[in-house]
Amino acid sequence: MSLPDHDMEPAAPVDGSASCTLAGARIVADPSGAILLRDARVLVVADLHFEKGSAFAARGDAWLPPYDTSETLARLERLCRHHQPQRVVCLGDSFHDLGGPGRMAAGDLARLRRLVARHDWVWITGNHDPAPPSDLGGMAAEALDVGRLTLRHEAATGMVPSGEISGHFHPKAAVRTRGRRISGRCFVTDGHRLILPAFGAFTGGLNVLDPALAALLQPAFRVFVIGKQRLFAYPHHQLAPEPPRL
């Protein structure tokens, strides 16, 4: 079995995280779906999709439980408490839609403001939230450079970047083991770019073998699948495609 040259270190058993290098920068992938750029004390999360539940209720499409925002916030608070980053970068689609901040419950809003105020907070703009709310604090940007890495919402097309971190696609991957198919959110990287899983509580996913995603990656990419406690690394050729859905 030949491994791609950007091989990742084995998943660390202690906190379930895994690490890799991207354009020479050391990156720690956390089982929560976030990454840490430890040297720079930066925490990065993608696709929070705050107020997704209420977006569906507002359209009359579904009564999704209105707890997704507070659930996502709680995960984010825990993460910040644990890692104490200096800077937090949200890679876009932080709100499910432009009306999201307006529908946010007062308590959740206050929690979010406190969290933002405690960090150097960056809202990368996404297709769901082209204009992040101005009254939450933090700064908005289309992209951000951290050292040699570029952070943006959606992977840039038509080029092989040198060190790009993005979200947008909500990658997930499936493997078959013992006749069972197990799938989960995942990080995916080809050594040049890294795409983060969605962090939000109600966010589904797109199989990394989907052409839309695979087209962005060098053929020999790898994934870190998020298990219950830790990450599991797989090369692309061990992954299973998505079953068709009606």
């Binding site: 013992r178 699948v225 298990g227 219950k228 830790r230 061990q238």
Partner: peptide
């Protein structure tokens, strides 16, 4: 549990 199945697969490999 899921984790063990995933882990087992990795060990198989």
């Amino acid at each position: 549990a899921i984790d063990e199945l995933l882990g087992e697969n990795a060990e198989d490999l």
